[in-house]
Amino acid sequence: MTFLSELLAWFTDPLNWQGTSGIPIRTWEHIQYSVAATLIAALIALPISLYLGHTGRGGLLAINIANIGRAIPSLGLIIMAFILLGLNIVPVMIALVALAIPPIVTNTYIGIRNVNREVRDAAGGMGMTGWQILTRVEIPVALPLIMAGLRTSAVQVVATATLAAYLSFGGLGRFLFDGLALQDYEQLTGGALLIAALSLITEFALARVQAVIVPKGLAKRNATAAVDAKMSGRAGVASSGA
């Protein structure tokens, strides 16, 4: 039998779709880790970067700190946290959250800072309070970039949640680590394909969400502006890493 037909056999084997180590349960575990990590990261990163963006203070510092988080390999972080905290899901979460924070911080901060000075100025001049300027003007206008950051984070988290299996937790990473240990290449490849598929679905799902929540007036206008900002954001990341 060829590898492809064996791979097909792995996917169609009813046994692989049943029980606690079947594809549905593993996928569900994977989704749970990913959603939890992305949410925690957003809860930490959004308020900080919104505040920094709104006040225009300490932004570079925050981006640099966030990038240090990005520079530490996730596997190293998991092992370190495991040594310090023992065998539980927390080390996995720490690694995933650390990975998810930088794109959210960078994009959100830049998104808010990129709101035209005169637009912010007009908002103040109309009599909006700082909070109203943030929630009614800055966040809506920055939403395309904020969402871009969340998407990047979520996709990276989905890919990296594989590492949960390294600490003998579940998720789609199980198929990778088990396949590797057993030299079961169908299982290994099947797992990799499932992770890739889940990443793509995440990307598309969030893109749909973005299309719905980004104000209509911005969708067209910002199509080009967002790309520019993203590129300058990347440039900032690259130079700060040097």
Binding site: D121, A122, G127, V141
Partner: peptide
């Protein structure tokens, strides 16, 4: 903020809110 709501202000660079329609801008 209250003072500014009582004083109409047309800023030099116009500064319309890009995410709001013209009606929403006027209704700010």
């Amino acid at each position: 903020a209250e003072l500014r709501r009582r004083i109409g202000y047309v800023i030099q660079q116009i500064g319309l809110f890009p995410h709001r329609t013209i009606r929403e801008n006027i209704g700010t």
